[in-house]
Design a protein around this nucleic acid. Structure first.
Length: 413
RNA sequence: GCGAACGUAGCUCAGUUGGUUAGAGCAUCGGGUUGUGGUUCCGAGGGUCGUGGGUUCAAUUCCCAUCGUUCGCC
């Protein structure tokens, strides 16, 4: 069988785990390191595919859980796959939905945030917003739809079938994410279950790819997902175990803060094989995530923060984050960032975007999203260039000191 | 001119049979958001309860006067 994905490394940065490269998929190439644009429900919120491409987005990540609930995998399959359905013809990742099964129900319940460090207790017994429990067994996960509360059951095999129906280029294994505050005993149990599920995902995935090949269709790629929380031995064990399976690349799950990157991500990427791409799941809300992630061997990121924060008025600038709704911007006729080359900065003022937000005009969300997504995508692009021209560490220092001020020292050491 | 109702936060209004620091929604101001939560979450500021008297231990509340708004009648 031919390969679903090819990864080649172009340049390595000595004194670090950083590298540049190219991921080749049936829907095009991704120059890495790259920021994968968040398109959870088969749309990058408020943006057309043309706007995503114009701001520099190479690839999009959609979410299998959300698409399973609406519109349903069968509709996307009938549409000819997610690329045709959403009219984006570049590489598309899917997240398995494992994260949502554990987090979304809880995240909707007031006072509990599954992704927060403040959460306590056993995540396998998470209280759903309807008062029901999400129950994890070795076979799969019983959970409830956050849309209507209906009972659902997901297995690794079902997740593979779902992602193949969606037809994305790169899939993630169905995994069990553990809270940062879970005890070692539970972390180990969840990790071992994730490993077991990884094997089951891979088996079903290969069967489905054989069907694709027999029909002359594009092959799809699968990434194994590393777990193990903040435990060095578990993370290394998880990375080593998954390295022994025939994955096209790896996802790194359960990392919550940039401070965990030089430890957790390093342990993992020192263990994983060099010749396969590594995707850091869900990280990229701030520049430190990106610089540290690349430095410690990450090739691709995805994160919803750029667009989510944009929708709430929090905009990146090279001098730090601003809240465009603040009253002092109502008469500021300069661009969001004078050094930014995005469509919003080239054509509109802070005063105008402030007005749009105050007036709850939809264009404000679009301009803010274009700016933030451009800022983060472009930041990773500059990181990639800095590796190729040997200026990564200088670039990192200049960028982070300007963005964070004195707090940049936390990331420079 | 006569009668009635109403004047409480920037706006629209609760409330008090007289009793701690008078509330809400919206608006204003600030913050949060990392495998997605646009229309959200958290917090803050803001009122001598129209004005002036009286009764009372105590008045935004009861009484009187006055000013204003609205409605009805002549």
């Amino acid at each position: 069988m031919k390969k679903a994905l090819e990864f080649s490394i172009k340049k390595r940065l000595s004194g670090s785990l950083a590298r540049t490269g190219v991921i080749k998929t049936p829907h095009g190439d991704i120059q890495t390191p790259a920021f994968i644009v968040g398109g959870t429900k088969a749309t990058v919120k408020t943006l057309t595919p043309e706007q995503v491409i114009e701001l520099g987005g190479q690839s999009i990540l959609v979410n299998a859980y959300h698409l399973m609930l609406r519109p349903g995998a069968e509709i996307i399959k009938a549409a000819g796959g997610v690329h045709k359905f959403m009219n984006f013809h570049g590489p598309i990742f899917t997240d398995s939905g494992g994260f949502q099964v554990f987090s979304l129900g809880m995240a909707y319940k007031k006072g509990i945030d599954a992704t927060s460090h403040s959460q306590k207790g056993d995540p396998s017994q998470a209280v759903h917003s309807t008062g029901q429990l999400t129950k994890v067994t070795d076979e799969g996960v019983h959970f409830r739809s956050h849309l209507d509360g209906s009972k659902l059951f997901m297995t690794p095999e079902m997740s593979m079938e779902l992602q193949h129906d969606i037809g994305s280029d790169i899939h993630m294994c169905f995994d069990e994410l553990t809270s940062p505050l879970a005890g070692r005993e539970y972390i180990e149990k969840a990790m071992n279950r994730t490993h077991s599920w990884a094997g089951r995902c891979l088996n079903r995935h290969k069967e489905l790819n054989e069907e694709h090949e027999s029909r002359g269709e594009n092959l799809q790629a699968l990434f194994g997902v590393v777990q193990g929380a903040r435990e060095e031995d578990y993370r290394k064990k998880s990375a080593a175990f998954l390295s022994g399976l025939d994955f096209d690349g790896f996802g790194i799950g359960g990392v919550f803060e940039p401070g965990e990157v030089p430890s957790t991500v390093r342990w993992i990427n020192e263990t994983l094989p060099e010749d396969k791409p590594r995707h850091l799941l869900g990280m990229g809300a701030q520049p430190a995530d990106l610089f540290l992630g690349v430095e410690y061997g990450i090739d691709t990121f995805d994160c919803v923060a750029p667009t989510r924060q944009a929708r709430n008025g929090a905009l990146y600038t090279y001098d730090g984050r601003i809240n465009i709704k603040n009253s002092n911007f109502s008469t500021d006729f300069g661009p969001i960032d004078r050094d930014c080359g995005c469509y919003a900065c080239k054509n509109f003022t802070r005063a105008y975007v402030n007005h749009l937000f105050k007036s709850e005009e939809i264009l404000g969300l679009t301009l803010a999203s274009i700016h933030n997504e451009y800022f983060i995508v472009h930041t990773v692009d500059t990181i990639r260039n800095s590796i190729e021209n040997g200026r990564f560490f200088e670039h990192k220092k200049e960028f982070l000191e300007r963005y964070y001020g004195e707090a940049a020292q936390l990331f420079l050491y």
